[in-house]
Design a protein around this nucleic acid. Sequence first.
DNA 1: ACCTGTGGCTGATCAC
DNA 2: GTGATCAGCCAC
Length: 693
Amino acid sequence: MNFGENEQLFGFDPLPRVVAAEFAEPNAIDLYVRQADGFTARVREVFQPFFWCAGDAGLELSGGLPLDRLVRCDSWAECQATRSEAASTMPTFWLNDPVQQYLTQSGRTLFKGMLFEDLRRMQVGLQTDENGLTAIALADSSGWEEVFAVQPGLVESERAALEWLSAQIAERDPDVIEGHNLFKVDLAFLAARAKKLKTKLPWGRNGEVLKSRPSRLQIAEKTIQYPKFVVPGRHLVDTWVLAQYYDVSSRELESFALEQVAQHFGVADKDSADGRTALSIVRETRALAAALSRSYFIQAQIFPYNYQDVIIRGNATKIDALFLREYLRRGHSLPDYPEARPFEGGYTDIFKTGVIPNVWHCDVTSLYPSVILAFGYTPAGDKLDLFRNLLSELRTFRVAAKAEMRKAESARERSQLDALQSTFKILINSFYGYLGFAQGHFADFDVAETVTAKGRELLRLMVDWLGKQGAEVIEIDTDGIYFHPPEGADAEVLQKGLTAELPEGIDVEFDERYTAMFSYKAKNYALLHEDGSMSIKGAALKSRGMEPFLRDYLEQFVRRLLEGKPRDAGGLRDEVEGRLRRGEFSIEVLAKTEALQDSVASYQKKISASSRNRAAAFELAIKSGRDYQAGDQVSYYITGTKKKVVAYENARLASEWNPEARDENVEYYVGKLHELAKKFAEFAESPDDLPLL
DNA sequence: ACCTGTGGCTGATCAC
DNA sequence: GTGATCAGCCAC
């Protein structure tokens, strides 16, 4: 199947091998296009900025929706001015990114006709010690690697290193520059050094200098402040940011340091076992970027954004961009923004707690997308029926891509198709979220509510039916059910029976059976798989905000419960307490690590307005004098001798801990252990109890 | 300048 | 002590 031919998804202009698009004052866009000989040519295109409005200026759009005029201007500045003037008297809307405007209007997207392997990716790694920069390493996707050694603190040596770096970029001409912590650490550092040395970093495709401005990233519940660097003609990609996005759904990264993330993905550099080198940094960055950025490469073929921006834009925003492109192409007017309001979500419940042997799980396949398509739910403003068309095409595409993946003969083809199907999956799952997205032109909160209501209804029906068959339902959440099957049950029979109860287009999967389940609270449980491995779910059981020694305790405790050893579980508390009192734990496992959700400045403002309470992590950030920003992590431990202390007055940074003069508050940590053990005591047996004979 | 949604649990702090 | 509130993290 040739997926790229869907013009609503991939854009309607097939111009191939565009590797970047940049705005050129006052009314042009420079396209960087890869030629057959490998050279990247610059093609200048005239471009007319535009905005949507009501009223009677400009071009009339069909369909009778509120934003029914399109005004085109001769320059960006003029368009900006005209638009803000119009905005005082009528509804207007415009895209504040000239590249998005151009791509939306032209139907072009990046990377058409290219494979991920055709992208020229360069990796940068800095090595520093307490004296300053010691080496810069570079690598690229062709396998090339080189290291430039720097004499730390020596100005001329640093200057030579920066010049070498800029020269390599100019010579090797990458489309993408990758680094781990590229924005917040490496580029911030290089830009600061360049400023100090009164030199520029001319990394652009026409020698333009590297620039930055303060920006922020929204990654799930985290807001991360960072300097957004840009360089015309190239894309800057931070694998630390990619790892953050990855973890939103996987929630399995212990740390976001390159070393740990590389280990998680099985791409840790072999040579780095005897010490981290600049070279191991770039090798791991290269492998990590290859593992994490394929989906964004495909997204850049779909959405009207530069590659660098497709990474940091939210999914609902990107779906909105597809609507705008298609409505504009068809000359159709746009609806007003929806009326945003809170609405009820998924059905979550727990019916049974404790350890339950032999547990099955079933869920509805893609619940919300299936509900939307099976019942024909579409947002009110979508006169062109794009919402339904795109969603159903994407679902067909994904099935096809998965089938082709299974038939693929080369590893490269397989990974390409895998990236494709997983990109389709991400998009499919974002459509429901788009319905409840206040900034989506075609969002519809009534429909969002209708979708979740139908989801709740279907889940209730499933729970009731399974109950009638004699199953013991344990825990449910939105689209899935954990249950203890009736005596002698057959999964296939249950699956068929359940599907027959459900409306056409709603399918149920019975995906796994477990040796045992520990059901604790809603969204909090642990599963013992048939192969002996264990998975733990829920903030109460495995939160990263929990001190590691307590998390370890809980993990072992739960494992013992699942293995049917409640007495061993009960005995664990005293073992851990002994180790605490003997000082056997290092500070890393005692300390709490938290990500700051706010900048220090914003925290201080809230404190003086009494709109939030003091917190240890922030108080330490202030005391340290370092410039902490939202998203930064702080590890701290509690000092003192009394069990009950005010945390924010008795906290120290874990990095300041002195193993020669241990001052961690043992009573405090023993107290926390006891508190935790008490919460779970009802599920274990106390070792003091007399054995039952 | 940026933004997909709701539901749920826990610890820390603070007002009462 | 108790309950309310916020922040943080997590499930889906």
